[in-house]
């Protein structure tokens, strides 16, 4: 266990999580006016039509696949009578399928954004470019790791997953990472970078995507809001929008 290992598997994940949480909160509270899905459908609709839904749906599946593989301990599936082979077949099959779909969607999105459409070019910010690089690296390395391990020889559920879970008890089990193949290790580094830059990019919209349906489902159709709430004590307007001040129609 050398210094690099300690940094990568014992310190970097915490830097990454800290950035993710702290910057997200700071941006939400102080820079809410920049918080947006940054949709570009207004500028380009033809290619978005396939690429965007495909990307979002496949990434949802990939996300839940990761939750299953990383957060659910080995012992749970064992107790349910799922054999190692069955598990690998299912995980590889589903993960591979949605991973490939995700890869295709990503290529379509890259072509849409960087393929010479002048309007898209005008709409692409530096943070978008950084995001595309990091996201592409993460997805590509995820695919490489998955397909390089088609045989299932490397069982990540005995090393990677327990290591990841050990992060949450603040006792990172760095030794577990020793046997992990390089592709998986790079994939780990990629998500750490991704999480750290995420709150600076348009990706913050995913948090709204998670909370909005719940808020929307239970609210009245037409919202009323009193002015005294949108003028703050110092006279400046409308920097926050606490739900408590929404008055219902009835």
């Amino acid at each position: 266990m050398n210094g690099i290992d300690i940094f990568l598997w014992g310190i970097a994940p915490y830097i990454s999580f800290t950035m993710l949480i702290a910057v997200t909160i700071i941006r939400r509270v102080h820079f809410a006016r920049t918080w947006s899905s940054k949709s570009s459908e207004f500028l380009e609709r033809k290619q978005e039509r396939v690429a965007n839904p495909l990307f979002h749906l496949s990434i949802l599946f990939v996300f839940f696949g990761h939750v299953g593989g990383v957060l659910v301990p080995h012992e749970v599936t064992d107790a349910l009578g799922v054999s190692e082979e069955m598990y690998h077949m299912a995980a590889f099959g589903m993960g591979g399928l949605f991973g490939v779909l995700l890869g295709i969607a990503l290529i379509l999105l890259i072509r849409r954004r960087f393929g010479g459409n002048e309007r898209m070019k005008a709409n692409t910010s530096t943070s978008d470019k950084v995001l595309y690089v990091v996201l592409t690296a993460t997805i590509v390395m995820g695919l490489v790791a998955t397909f390089s391990n088609a045989s299932g020889a490397f069982n990540y559920r005995e090393s990677l997953s327990p290591w990841f879970r050990s992060l949450f008890t603040f006792q990172p089990d760095i030794a577990l990472m020793a046997q992990v193949p390089l592709a998986f290790k790079i994939h780990m580094c990629c998500w750490m970078i991704l999480f750290a830059v995420l709150p600076f990019t348009r990706l913050v919209h995913m948090f709204s995507g998670i909370t909005a349906p719940f808020k929307y489902a239970r609210r009245k159709a037409v919202l009323y809001r009193a002015r005294k709430h949108d003028v703050r004590a110092n006279g400046a307007r409308d920097l926050e929008f606490p739900d408590a001040i929404i008055l219902d129609r009835k």
Binding site: S208, A212, P213, K215, Y216, R219, V222, L223, Y224, R225, A226, R227, F241, D243, I246, L247
Partner: peptide, 12 residues
């Protein structure tokens, strides 16, 4: 609006 960002002002 899913975000509840659009509202009708109570006063006017």
């Amino acid at each position: 609006c899913p975000s509840g960002a659009i509202y009708k002002r109570d006063e006017d």
